[in-house]
Simulated scan of single mutants.
Amino acid sequence: MNAWPQVWPQVWPQWVAWWPWLTIAALGLFHGLNPAMGWLFAVALGLHRGQRRVVLWSLVPIALGHAVAVALAVAVALWLGGVLPYAAFARVAGAVLLGWAIWHVVRGHRMRPRVGMRAGMLGLACWSFLMAGMHGAGLMLVPALMPICATPGATLLDPSGALGPAMIALGVHTVAMLAAVCAVALVVYDRVGVAFLRTGWVNLDWIWTAALGVCGVALLLR
């Protein structure tokens, strides 16, 4: 028991260094679990064509569409970080996240793009891109990217220096999202079936909306 206070100062810096990356990966896993992000469409397309490999191939455009939407949000964040002071950037990011959460509560569930369950690969990519953008998937990465991309002591983000870490973060997020989508899609296609969604699935949109709001408030109060 007495050894823990001596160990904690050594563990704490490691946690500080790793928490943004763990958060980025966790957000990717969360997005992958959400049926609205694409795995439900991949399963439907595989069932329609009666081929398991169609499920796997469908994951490619889903991941690409998601990655492009997140990359656009990250690019805008890097640009803003290069023209706004760090504290002001945090306030703007917090206000946007909180505003996005409020928009989801008020209007988000009414603004769904319509894509048929038998959409082709291009349709899946477009759906994934639109849903990632509407959910604010890229916006949610901003709080985790700030400590990764910021130079200690700097008042502004350096877009050139932050580009490398941001691209790695995008890759980590996309791989985690793709892994989750692949795992859920194959389990549903091979074992479970889609009927369980009627009674056995949590509304992830409400959890996501709450997370957006909490992160927005945290940035505004920091």
Rank of each mutant, 00 (worst) to 15 (best):
T151P: 06
A125P: 01
G193E: 07
L178E: 00
G65L: 05
G94W: 03
R52D: 10
V187A: 12
T23E: 02
V192F: 01
G108R: 14
G161K: 15
A179L: 11
W19C: 00
V54S: 14
A25I: 01
A179F: 08
H48I: 07
A132P: 09
A69V: 02
L221M: 09
G216Q: 07
G171F: 06
G123T: 05
A63N: 06
P61E: 09
A101L: 04
R112K: 14
A63P: 04
P5T: 08
A44D: 08
V184I: 12
M177A: 00
Q10E: 14
G46F: 05
V187G: 11
T174W: 00
A63T: 11
V194L: 14
M1V: 13
L145K: 12
P61Y: 00
V214Y: 15
A119P: 00
R112L: 01
V54E: 15
V55R: 01
L219D: 00
G81S: 11
V214P: 10
A218P: 10
W8P: 00
F89P: 01
G171L: 09
G200C: 04
A87V: 01
G136F: 03
A88V: 06
V105H: 10
A73K: 08
G38I: 03
L45D: 03
W4T: 13
V43T: 04
V194N: 14
M131R: 07
L156H: 14
